[in-house]
């Protein structure tokens, strides 16, 4: 019953890539996703949702990299997502001071 080894990639850097992509990348994507919504709508409701639902989203994003054969490819996708989300967040936050003044 143990997982059939022929499907597992034993190389350290592949495993490292998948785990870090899910753990670090997944966490940052989850946070940014919620923070963007927090800028656009009721930030208190979104942030308290992030506090518990964030773990479920993060968990999903931690599973996804394992579906890739190449862990670095997963990192690439996550990195692009991070750039897009990060840029959106930065743009929204800096160009819409009226959103922030509502805080």
């Amino acid at each position: 019953m143990p997982a059939n080894k022929k499907y597992l990639n034993p190389s350290f850097h592949q495993r490292f890539a998948k785990i870090t992509a899910g753990f670090i990348g997944g966490f940052l994507i989850t946070s940014l996703l919620f923070l963007i919504f927090a800028l656009l709508t009721d930030h208190v409701a979104i942030l308290i949702t992030l506090k518990f639902a964030g773990f479920i989203v993060w968990c999903t994003l931690m599973i996804l990299p394992f579906l890739f054969e190449n862990g670095w490819k997963a990192w690439a996708f996550y990195f692009i997502a991070l750039l897009v989300l990060g840029a959106t967040f930065y743009f929204l936050k800096s160009t819409s001071p009226e959103l922030l003044s509502a805080l």
């Binding site: 930030h43 506090k51 518990f52």
Partner: peptide, 20 residues
């Protein structure tokens, strides 16, 4: 609920504190 109660504020909301 366990993860939320124990690290919800310190870890999950850490990015909210620093960036938001």
């Amino acid at each position: 609920t366990g993860a939320t109660l124990i690290i919800g504020s310190t870890i999950m909301l850490s990015t909210a504190t620093s960036f938001f």
